[in-house]
């Protein structure tokens, strides 16, 4: 599904990502882990062609990320979710659905379904400027889930949510697994990651340290947090 081949990104003399190579199979739930400044968000931004690679290649379903068709069935939640202040949550969802590239039929029904999924019934026709951070997060997550994406890229999806919201997101992601969706999850909530994801790719200082099934790297009497600290401090 996704293939990173020797991906490097330099900002002047600073190397943010260096020679990263791994792949994510269809239906795999992969966590992208690493300390602050490890290059996780840069890698996600290169995957979406938001920033150009200095070297290497990334493909989605065999298509290079420079081809807009590679984003045909992607749902993306940014690290800093934002909705233009002049739009309502409903307008935002409708716009995102219209540009999904899958035709215009059933957009209103799909948006109504998503409003239910994110628990925002009754608030969807209010202007975004009146929403709290958590509400914006929910609408942006809803936008990512529109039109049944095959690949979901979530950058810190639970950062602005309350404990109930965090639990709802986890349950939602677990339910999507049965539909064969692929997930790339960038998160610091390692306990959540451990419950949701199948594999983990750990980055530090721009380099990939490990990319393996979580079950294989977490030893007995260990948590993913222990593994993370061990791998990062040992690099």
């Amino acid at each position: 599904m996704i293939e990173f081949r020797g991906v490097t990104k330099c900002y002047g003399t600073l190397t943010a990502v260096e020679n990263v190579a791994f792949s994510i199979a269809r239906g795999e739930y992969c966590a992208l882990l690493g300390p602050n400044g490890a290059g996780k968000t840069t890698l996600v931004r290169m995957l979406l062609h938001f920033t150009a690679m200095s070297a290497g290649a990334i493909t989605i379903d065999g298509l290079p990320v420079s081809d807009p068709h590679s984003r045909l069935a992607i749902g993306y939640l940014s690290e800093q979710p934002r909705i233009p202040a002049q739009l309502t949550g409903w307008e935002y969802l409708k716009r995102c659905a219209q540009l999904g590239g899958t035709g215009s039929s059933g957009i209103a029904d799909d948006c109504a379904r998503i409003v239910q999924v994110i628990g925002m019934q009754g608030r969807e026709h209010e202007k975004a400027r009146t929403y709290s951070k958590g509400m914006v997060q929910r609408f942006c997550l809803g936008a990512a889930l529109l039109r049944d994406p095959r690949l979901l890229i979530l950058d810190e999806p639970t950062s602005g949510l309350d404990p109930i919201g965090i639990r709802e997101v986890r349950v939602l992601l677990e339910s999507l697994k049965s539909r064969g969706m692929t997930l790339l999850l960038n998160s610091h909530f390692l306990s959540e990651v451990e419950r949701i994801c199948d594999t983990a790719a750990i980055l530090n200082r721009g380099s990939l340290l490990v990319k393996d099934p979580i079950a294989a790297i977490v030893k007995e009497n260990e948590t993913l947090e222990d593994v993370f600290v061990r791998v990062v401090s040992g690099s």
């Binding site: 979406l48 062609h49 938001f50 807009p68 068709h69 590679s70 984003r71 045909l72 992607i74 993306y76 940014s78 800093q80 979710p81 934002r82 909705i83 233009p84 202040a85 935002y92 716009r95 995102c96 540009l99 999904g100 590239g101 942006c140 936008a143």
Partner: peptide
């Protein structure tokens, strides 16, 4: 404005080329 309010990110994460 569109960079700051997230419009560019939500539009360009869809199957839209930059020239579109």
């Amino acid at each position: 404005r569109e960079r700051d309010d997230g419009t560019q990110a939500y539009l360009l994460s869809r199957p839209i080329a930059r020239w579109h």
